[in-house]
Simulated assay, not measured.
Amino acid sequence: MSADVICKAYQATEDGFLSLVTKQWPMKPQIAAVGSCCLVGVICNGTLYVANLGDSRAVLGRAVKATGEVLAIQLSAEHNVCIESVRREMQSLHPDDSQIVVLKHNVWRVKGLIQISRSIGDVYLKKAEFNREPLYPKFRLREPFRKPILSADPSISMHELQPHDQFVIFASDGLWEHLSNQEAVNIVQNHPRSGSAKRLVKTALQEAAKKREMRYSDLKKIDRGVRRHFHDDITVIVVFLDSNLMSRASSARALIYPLEGAELTSLRIY
């Protein structure tokens, strides 16, 4: 396992989707505008590798013995042009394009279309041959581009797991839109292994309802096709770490996955 191996896996996924788009283009040209964020966590020999494309996020919960608190540590880098450093990165990569990032309806977007700068898919902003008719006009750029606008290169970090590392939350931006890193970690710490992922989703939905000045029960009644206007999709995975297994992995240098349990909850709204 290495960062290079993970990069190759991402590229293979990107190439596979590009092949699918190429085959489907004559019958389903709108597939060229389909894309996804991609957050990956791999634990090998006591090291946690976190790779990310887009604006999903991985957050570690680390116990502080002196206070009994659990500290939230963000492990992933995000690629959303609402972040100033990401805007600067895009501008440096495309110095000849003054419209590479545009403020539209008070939201920064790449070419006025999409918020993320890296993804799997979205080939209409990576391959000029797919940015044309019969793709819907709202996706087509007025001028052709010579090099990819979006990237499929993940940001990768490596973290040597310690006995006081308790769990990792992997979640899409639908969660982080409503909860801070520390708020999410506190929820998991206060309700370990008892539906933590579901609690995170429910709390985020309660916050979304509050921002709309409505009740949570009323938000739940809204049809999913309409709820897209109230909150984004939310996917959460909580992985609990076992310090005993990590200790044995460190001493034996064996391939041990130090996971005591994991929970997954996903809410999709189309």
Rank of each mutant, 00 (worst) to 15 (best):
K126I: 00
A252T: 05
P154G: 02
M158Y: 07
H191F: 13
L267F: 10
I222G: 07
A171Y: 06
W108C: 11
V188I: 09
Y136K: 07
V226M: 03
C82S: 10
A9S: 10
V70M: 01
R132L: 08
C7F: 05
R199S: 14
A63Q: 04
C44V: 11
G195M: 15
V21Y: 07
D4W: 15
R132N: 12
A249P: 13
V42P: 00
I73S: 10
F17K: 11
A58T: 13
S119C: 06
R57C: 03
A72W: 11
Q91I: 04
K23T: 12
I156W: 03
S157N: 02
K23M: 12
V101P: 08
L93D: 06
Q162H: 01
N244Q: 07
S247D: 12
G46C: 09
Q24P: 10
V110W: 00
L125P: 04
Q189I: 01
K147V: 02
Q99I: 03
Y216M: 05
S19A: 15
V107L: 08
K28Y: 12
K104I: 09
S76W: 06
L200I: 07
I116R: 01
K23R: 14
I31M: 06
S2E: 15
A63C: 01
P163M: 02
T13V: 12
F230R: 09
I31Y: 03
L60A: 07
L264P: 15
S157I: 01
A184P: 03
I187A: 09
E69P: 08
N52K: 05
A197L: 11
D218I: 11
L135M: 08
N244S: 08
I120A: 02
S151E: 01
I31D: 00
D218N: 10
I269P: 07
E133W: 13
V21K: 07
E89G: 09
G54E: 01
S151V: 01
S180A: 05
S247G: 06
A262N: 13
G61W: 04
G46P: 04
L267G: 09
M214F: 07
E263I: 13
L150C: 01
T265D: 14
V101N: 04
M27P: 00
Y270D: 08
T265N: 14
P148S: 02
I237E: 15
V70W: 03
A208H: 12
F130W: 13
K65Q: 03
S155Y: 04
S157M: 02
Y136P: 11
A66D: 02
S196T: 13
S2L: 12
Y10C: 01
L200D: 12
S172H: 06
V64I: 04
E207G: 12
L18G: 07
L60D: 10
R215C: 09
V21P: 08
V50T: 10
E78H: 05
V185C: 06
L71H: 08
S117M: 05
T22K: 01
K126V: 00
R227A: 08
V110Y: 03
E160P: 08
G174F: 13
L135H: 13
C7A: 10
G195V: 15
L264Q: 15
L241W: 03
L39I: 10
C44E: 14
V201C: 13
G195S: 15
V239Y: 15
D242A: 04
V226R: 09
S98L: 05
N80D: 07
F167L: 06
V226T: 08
V34T: 10
D233A: 05
N190Y: 11
E133H: 15
D15W: 09
R199Q: 15
I156G: 07
T13E: 09
Y257N: 14
A204C: 13
I256V: 10
K111W: 05
